[in-house]
Nucleic acid binder design. Structure first.
Lengths: 155, 155
DNA sequence: TTTAAATCCAAGTGAATTAATAGGAATTAA
DNA sequence: TTAATTCCTATTAATTCACTTGGATTTAAA
C-alpha cells in the first residue's frame, strides 16, 4: 500500500517545474540536478505527465517542459493518477462501474475497497498544484530570512 | 498503490471466521475451502492477526481460531494494519512524528502524504468488522430468498 | 550548415518484493 | 495412540520496481 517512486519523484518533479518555470521552459537536466533524480528516469515520469496533458514538451536545443495548464487547475490527484495509474487499493471492476464481477453479489469487502478508494481520491483531488507552489515559496522565504538573520548576527 | 493479497485474503478470512464462528472455533481448513485460499498461506495471514491480538488460536485436534475480542470492537483498520503493516502511502518519518528527516524543512510533498494517510486511516477505522458481518448475513439471506422463490415457481 | 542541447522512445537488466509452497515440530481431543 | 490441528521456518517461482542503455529526432545558436 505504498506509492512507487513514480508518484513520489514525479510529484516533486512537476512541483519543481511549476516553481522554477515562470512562463519559461525548464530542461529536465535542471530538475534532475535540483531534485537529485536520474535524468533518464525523469524522462519516463514526465512522459506520463505529457500523455495526460499536464505538461507540454518543447523539443530541440533550449527546449524543455512547461505546464500545459495553469497550476490552479492541476490537482495532485491528476498528477498522481497520471504517474501511478488509478489510486484504487484493489483491482475491482465494481469500483469502476463495470459490474461484470461474477462474485459481485456475495462480495462484501468491495464496500471497504470503495470507501478507501473514495477517501484517497477525494483527498488528492482537493489539493491543487498551486497550493504546493505557494507552500514551497513560503518555505524558501523562511529559510532565506533565517539565513540573513544568521548573517546579520555574525556582523 | 495496491493492497497485497495479505490484506485482501486476510480480510476475507477474518470475515469468514466472524460469520461462521458463533462462539465456536473455526479450523483454518474450513476457511481455506470456503474462501479458496491455500491453507498454508492462510496460516501466515492468521498468524499476523494473532500477533495483533485480534484472534486466538486453539491448538490440537478440534482446535481452530476464534475472535479474541467482539467484532464490534475490531475495526477494518486494525485488521488491515495487522496484515499489511502501516497504511501510509510513503515511508516518511514525519508522518509517524519522528521529525528526524534532514530535508523536513524544504519538503512540501509531506503535506500531501499526510492528507492521504489520514484519509485512508480514517476511512478504515470507521468500519467495524461487525458491520461487514451484518452486511454478509443480509446478502446471504437475500440469496436464499431468491432461491426459494425460484423453487416455489418451479412447483 | 554544422553542432550541441534537448526531447522522445523502446528495450533490457539487476534487485527486491510478493505469493506462495514445503516440511516438520508441538499440542490436544477423541 | 492416533489423527487433527496450530505453529514455525525455510525455500522458491513469479512478478514488479527502479532504474540503465542506446539510440532517433528535433531545433536554437554558432
Amino acid at each position: 500500500m505504498k506509492l512507487s517512486t513514480k508518484g513520489r519523484y514525479g510529484l516533486r518533479a512537476i512541483l519543481d517545474l511549476a516553481v522554477h518555470g515562470n512562463d519559461e521552459v525548464v530542461a529536465l537536466s535542471q530538475i534532475a540536478v535540483r531534485q537529485n533524480i536520474s535524468i533518464n528516469y525523469l524522462e519516463q515520469l514526465i512522459s506520463r505527465l505529457k500523455k495526460a496533458g499536464i505538461v507540454n514538451g518543447i523539443r530541440g536545443a533550449q527546449g524543455g517542459y512547461v505546464l500545459a495548464i495553469p497550476a490552479e487547475e492541476i490537482s495532485v490527484g491528476d498528477i498522481l493518477r497520471a504517474l501511478e495509474g488509478d489510486l484504487d487499493p484493489v483491482d475491482c471492476s465494481e469500483l469502476k462501474g463495470d459490474s461484470t464481477c461474477s462474485s459481485s453479489d456475495v462480495c462484501v469487502t468491495k464496500y471497504v475497497w470503495k470507501r478507501i478508494s473514495d477517501s484517497i481520491n477525494d483527498a488528492v483531488d482537493g489539493i491543487m498544484l498551486s497550493e504546493l507552489v505557494n507552500e514551497s515559496k513560503k518555505v524558501h522565504e523562511e529559510i532565506s530570512i533565517k539565513n540573513s538573520d544568521k548573517a546579520s548576527s555574525m556582523c
